[in-house]
C-alpha cells in the first residue's frame, strides 16, 4: 500500500495542511517565506529564493509545508531517494514571456541567464530538488485533463514499480499550489497517514486545482 504522509496547499490568501490540520490566512505572499522561517516550517534558508519565478517560489513553499506536515526533516543527507513530479496547465508561460520580452526590450543583443533558467517547466521542481536535496526522479508532466489526479496516478505507478521509494507530487501555478508526499511505508504513525487509494477516490471527478484544494481543505 502507498501512503500519503503529508498534504499541504497554498492559495492567494490561505494555506493549510491535512495531517497536522494547520489552517490559516495570510495577507502578503512575500511574507510567507519569513513566516515559514519563524515557525520552523522552512528549516534551512532556500538559496536564491528572491530570484525565483512565481511558480518556483510557490513550489518550494508548498513543499516546505508538506514536509512539515509529514514530520520530515529535510536535511540533505536524508533525502536521496525522494523524487519530485509536478504538473500545471500553463507550463512556464509567464516566465517565458518575461524572459523573451526582456531580451527584446533590451535590443535583442543579450539576454539574462537568470531569467532564461526559468523557461523550463521542470525548473521549479529542480530548484526544490536542489534546496531539499532530493536525488530521486524529477520530471514535469502535463495531461489533457485532470492534472492532479493523473499526477497522483503516475506517482503511484512509479512507487509500486520501485522506481523510487518516496515522491513529492506538486501541482503549482502562480496563484495556488498543492503538494502530496507519497511513500511506500507508513513510518510516521502519529500523523495518521492516509492511503493514496482513499485520496484518489475522494478526488475523483474533481479536475481543477482550485476545486481540489477546496475539497481537501473542507474535508481536513
Amino acid at each position: 500500500m502507498i501512503f500519503v504522509a503529508g498534504i499541504s496547499w497554498i492559495t492567494n490568501n490561505k494555506l493549510g495542511t491535512a495531517c497536522k490540520k494547520i489552517s490559516g490566512t495570510y495577507e502578503n505572499r512575500r511574507d510567507l517565506y519569513s513566516q515559514f522561517k519563524e515557525k520552523g516550517i522552512i528549516q534551512n534558508n532556500i538559496k536564491n529564493f528572491g530570484r525565483f519565478d512565481h511558480v518556483s517560489k510557490n513550489t518550494c513553499l508548498v513543499i516546505s509545508l508538506t514536509l512539515y506536515d509529514a514530520d520530515i526533516s529535510y536535511l540533505k543527507d536524508n533525502m536521496q531517494s525522494v523524487g519530485i513530479l509536478s504538473t500545471n496547465e500553463e507550463d512556464c508561460l509567464n516566465s517565458n514571456i518575461k524572459y523573451f520580452k526582456d531580451y527584446v526590450d533590451c535590443g535583442r543583443k543579450l539576454s539574462r541567464g537568470n531569467l532564461f533558467i526559468y523557461t523550463l517547466p521542470s525548473t521549479p521542481i529542480a530548484e526544490a530538488a536542489i534546496n531539499f536535496g532530493c536525488q530521486g526522479p524529477v520530471a514535469y508532466f502535463t495531461f489533457k485533463e485532470d492534472q492532479t489526479n493523473q499526477l497522483l496516478e503516475q506517482g503511484r505507478m512509479m512507487i509500486e514499480r520501485k522506481e523510487t521509494t518516496d515522491l513529492l507530487l506538486v501541482n503549482s501555478s502562480e496563484d495556488e499550489a498543492i503538494c502530496f508526499y507519497l511513500r511506500k511505508k507508513n513510518i510516521s504513525s502519529e500523523n495518521g497517514n492516509i492511503s493514496l487509494e482513499k485520496i484518489q477516490k475522494s478526488l475523483k471527478n474533481t479536475p481543477g486545482l482550485s476545486e481540489i484544494i477546496n475539497n481537501i481543505s473542507q474535508k481536513g
Binding site: E89, D91, Y140, F141, T142, K144
Partner: peptide, 24 residues
C-alpha cells in the same frame, strides 16, 4: 503551451488513447 501541442500531436497521429507531456 505544451498542452496545446499535445492536442495537436494526438490529432496528427490519430491517437485515441490517453495523452501526456513529459518535460524534464
Amino acid at each position: 503551451c505544451l498542452g496545446q501541442l499535445l492536442e495537436k500531436t494526438s490529432a496528427l497521429f490519430e491517437i485515441k488513447g490517453k495523452g501526456m507531456v513529459v518535460s524534464a
